[in-house]
Amino acid sequence: MYSTKIVKAENSSAAVQAIGSSKEGKILAGGMTLIPTLKQRLANPDCLIDISGCGLEGVEDKGSSVRIGAMTKHAAVAESSLVAKAIPALADLAGGIGDRQVRNRGTLGGSVANNDPAACYPSAVMALDGTVHTNKRDISADDFFKGMFETALEEDEVIEAVSFKKPEKACYMKFPNPASRYAMVGVFVAKFSDGVRVAVTGAGEEGVFRHSDLESALSSNFSEEAVSGVEVSSDGLMSDIHASADYRANLIGEMTKRAVSS
């Protein structure tokens, strides 16, 4: 990697300030994507702002939702008894990201801010009608994700926490890419009293998305048969050496069925 400067921020406003005073500073959360990129010399930021000391870790029960600090590690979410009780599907999702080493370094905020089209967490934020809390504002999930690797975050904005609404029932089904074990297709189904939300990751060319046909079918009839009745289109789905858009479309249907029947 190229040499760079590391600044340890004490709170999120200090982090934002450090970003502002750098030319091309980057926030360093868990570093699970950023550090390998730097090692490959594919980015050359003049400054890394380490936010591990900003007090952004922890899980809180907020009644109708669960609020998780941005720097909370995947392993902590996976092992949290609070999450396991309130939204077990979220704990499952966190426990299935990467490997043990990644889960002990990687963070919720890092994953959400990066918005990798094959990351697991964005689907949970989307399906659980989440809210992204930044140092400036609260952003609803539907407004937050703006396409592959793009979010509503502005230059002077840092994610502090994400809130997830407690569903009546939810399940995340991941079909992992056999090599990377990222989601080749991941479907998060969440049933609320006022309807069902279905978010798909790993498949869309624009990153995570809600599948409205599946949502309306499941909202009126929460069953595998309802899923079978939906023709999942391959339009807008990714094709790569691992899976064609057609195959991904098939997997969306299959993973949804499994999520519904689990």
Binding site: P178, A179, S180, Y182, I241, H242
Partner: peptide
């Protein structure tokens, strides 16, 4: 996996499955 230009598209464990 090589593409038609001779680029090795499976040159890391992200894409080459052990």
């Amino acid at each position: 996996h090589y593409d038609e230009n001779g680029q090795l598209l499976t040159a890391s464990y992200m894409d080459y499955c052990m």
